[in-house]
Simulated scan of single mutants.
Amino acid sequence: MKLSKPLPLKPLYRDNMTLSPAEENDMTHVFLMGKDAWGAEFQTEEYLDICCASEKYRLGNWFILRDSSGAPLSSAISYVIPGHNNSSWIGIGSLATEVNSRKKGYGLSCLSMLLEGYEKQQATTGFMLFQDVQTNIYRSAGFVAAESRGYKGAHPSLLLRINERNNQEAEYFLKNPPSYF
């Protein structure tokens, strides 16, 4: 399965925060939010070069959560993953929060607003992500372990969020999941 760029989302607003597509001038800040998790072994410039050159990062849409003053709080990337019978899933990755803003609920706000945006603005079968960090954020946003739905693949960290009416698509998807992204 090939990842591709989803259609853009309109900005979303909640509790004096805005989730909107990241602009080109936001990307350095967005990448640095996750440096401690995904690039701690690299010098900052080397890490930024790797992120900027990443084909995977170019295939998705980046979003940034900001407070009422415009300060960045959290960010994530989304992809379209083709499913069964022309259905599409949204893959979410690289959820990261500003170091000084962690443990305040901003990661969950970013994720839940992103899910809400896709549910309201686009037709999607479900959502998936790979849990890199142990946290309750994903469960709080309605994700369950794919293993609990019968998945026995190579990625025990695969999590899904689906609507019960999409069980057939989920079963197909679990037989043919994308590789780790």
Rank of each mutant, 00 (worst) to 15 (best):
Gly83Ala: 06
His29Lys: 14
Ser74Pro: 05
Lys104His: 14
Thr135Cys: 05
Ala53Asn: 11
Cys110Pro: 02
Gln168Ile: 02
Asn163Cys: 13
Tyr151Glu: 11
Pro11Thr: 11
Tyr47Asn: 01
Ala40Leu: 07
Arg66Thr: 02
Ala76Gly: 05
Asp49Ser: 14
Gly150Lys: 11
Thr97Arg: 01
Gly142Pro: 07
Lys152Val: 08
Leu59Val: 00
Pro178Glu: 04
Gln122Pro: 07
Glu55Pro: 10
Met128Asn: 03
Arg139Gly: 00
Tyr118Met: 07
Ala146Asn: 12
Pro11Ser: 15
Ala96Pro: 04
Tyr138Val: 05
Ile50Pro: 01
Gly117Trp: 08
Val30Ser: 11
Thr125Asn: 14
Ser4His: 12
Gly93Ala: 13
Asn61Glu: 10
Cys52Phe: 06
Thr44Pro: 01
Ser179Glu: 14
His155Lys: 00
Glu169Gln: 10
Phe173Asn: 04
Glu171Phe: 01
Asp26Ser: 04
Met27Asn: 05
Tyr180Ser: 04
Leu129Phe: 15
Ser75Trp: 12
Phe181Val: 14
Leu111Lys: 08
Gly60Asn: 01
Ser69Ile: 12
Ser109Thr: 05
Asn163Val: 05
Leu115Pro: 10
Asn166Pro: 00
Leu114Trp: 04
Gly126Lys: 08
Lys56Glu: 00
Ser78Asp: 14
Glu119Met: 08
Val99Ser: 03
Trp89Lys: 03
Ser101Arg: 08
